[in-house]
Design a protein around this nucleic acid. Sequence first.
DNA 1: AAAGACACCTGTCCGC
DNA 2: TGCGGACAGGTGTCTT
Length: 269
Amino acid sequence: MPELPEVETTLRGLEPHCLNRSIIQIDINQPKLRWPIPPQIQLLKNARITAMQRRAKYLIMSTDKGHMIWHLGMSGSMRLLPNQDPGVKHEHVKITFENKTSLRYRDPRRFGALLLTHDDPLLHPLISPLGPEPLSEDFHADYLWQQCKNRKTAIKNVIMHSHIVVGVGNIYACESLFMSGINPKTSALRISRKRIQALVEAIKMVLQQAIEQGGTTLKDFTQSDGKPGYFTQSLKVYANAQNCVQCGHAIKRITQGQRTTYYCPSCQH
DNA sequence: AAAGACACCTGTCCGC
DNA sequence: TGCGGACAGGTGTCTT
């Protein structure tokens, strides 16, 4: 489900309500996520939330007793509800605060994760090898150009690889390639420096706009207040259009790396 | 070192 | 109404 804008939207929605809250109870209804939730998570009882941040698609909640590292996988979402609210199916984790609200983690497919670390969370083995944040200055045309120039694989696979750049999932990969007029199948090393520049700008623009509109709701993503993301209506190619909004040509649907790609064969070369 | 396949899991939708 | 199959927003790990 969630790509970078959806995780960022979740963070921004939760942070004002979670910061400085004290945890009085942790209920694990289903520990079997991508990795089992460590039982030591209970050590965070009576801890206070001191900071929240996003790195790639990981959401990091720091406390005075350790750091929670969350991932939403394909179908995860987080909400705050009144403590007595029964919630819905697949709410695997409930973290109750002293003010009678509780954080609910819901993830029907259970590809997500909740991990615990006492070290610097950015040095965690899942996080330290990650590439630059796409919206940071570290992600620029020279960098992506260097990453592309020796790679024969299709450009879409390159921008979706988290060790190259994080946060670009299937939707926004398709959208940014459309915006920059690049065919997703094009071998990375065959793309000019100038077009790589256009791609970098498109990735930044698409992600930034999606964040501003609260992410994309295809099926069941909701912001932490329960509202859908409004970027859905801005999608140009992904699962939306039969025909290209620019030229009217039929949108083509192919498979790359076991993921569905949508593109316009007329506008994207 | 790079690239591709596979695994994990549930829900939904479509055709018969 | 039921059943089978395809498909879904991710990514670590294993195999070529």
